[in-house]
Simulated scan of single mutants.
Amino acid sequence: MTKYKVDYNSPIGIIEIIGSDEAVCSIMFSERQQIINIPKDSTPKILLDCLKQLDEYFHGQRFTFTFPYSVEGTNFQKRVWQALTNIGYAEIGTYKTIAMSIGNEKAIRAVGNANGKNKLSIVIPCHRIIGSNGTLTGYAGGLWRKEWLLQHEKSFHKGN
């Protein structure tokens, strides 16, 4: 299966999107300062849709994502990632609430580990998970990005 890459220049850094003709499989922050993967004639529509929807998200115009994506991981990881998708825009959860939601209250550390292996940043909203004591903890893109994303969603949340 052919994989394609395209970059999105977000307000908090370049995001590299990887996918195929069928689905997006990775949306990860890059520490690069310049875009190197630009859309081409061969770029699948799914990746272009992802770019557009991320742009809408960052402009406060999109609160859910509709493009197809695929995940690879253990059954446990997939259950955690599925549970993350149930945390709504501008809402937060904890590692413990995710562990409880998948029926394994004692798996808090394992939930944190699965959270850290999520390759679909923003779309599978691991940035919405905080520590039980209310502190920001672990985020592969950096805690400053996690804080920015939470504030961004809060600023566009219809409840404000």
Rank of each mutant, 00 (worst) to 15 (best):
N9D: 13
N9K: 12
S10L: 01
S10T: 13
P11A: 03
I12C: 06
G13A: 01
G13Q: 03
I14E: 01
I15D: 02
I15S: 14
E16Q: 03
E16L: 10
I17S: 00
I17T: 03
S20A: 05
E22R: 13
A23Q: 10
V24I: 03
V24G: 01
C25H: 14
S26A: 12
S30N: 04
E31L: 05
R32L: 01
R32W: 12
R32P: 02
R32M: 09
I35G: 01
I35R: 03
I36V: 05
I36C: 05
I38S: 12
P39K: 06
K40R: 15
D41P: 00
D41M: 02
S42R: 09
S42F: 10
T43L: 01
T43I: 03
P44L: 04
P44E: 04
I46S: 02
D49N: 14
D49E: 09
D49T: 15
C50F: 00
L51T: 10
Q53N: 05
E56S: 09
Y57H: 11
Y57C: 00
Y57P: 06
F58W: 03
G60L: 13
G60R: 08
Q61E: 13
Q61W: 07
R62F: 04
F63T: 14
T64C: 03
T64L: 06
T64N: 07
T66I: 05
F67T: 13
P68Y: 06
E72Y: 11
G73T: 12
F76I: 09
F76W: 00
Q77I: 09
R79D: 05
R79G: 03
R79Q: 03
W81K: 13
A83Q: 09
T85R: 12
T85G: 05
N86Y: 13
I87N: 09
G88K: 10
A90Q: 11
A90D: 11
E91H: 15
E91T: 14
I92R: 14
Y95Q: 15
K96E: 15
T97G: 07
M100K: 15
I102N: 05
K106L: 10
K106Y: 10
K106I: 06
A107T: 05
A107K: 04
R109S: 10
A110Y: 05
A110E: 12
A110W: 01
A110Q: 07
V111N: 07
A114P: 00
N115A: 10
G116T: 11
K119C: 11
S121I: 02
S121R: 03
S121Y: 06
S121K: 10
I122M: 00
V123C: 08
V123W: 07
V123S: 02
V123T: 12
V123Q: 05
C126K: 11
C126G: 15
H127C: 09
R128P: 03
I129Q: 10
I129A: 10
I130F: 08
S132W: 08
N133L: 11
G134V: 14
G134H: 13
G138Q: 15
Y139I: 14
Y139D: 14
A140M: 14
G142V: 06
L143V: 13
L143C: 11
L143Y: 10
W144A: 15
W144Q: 15
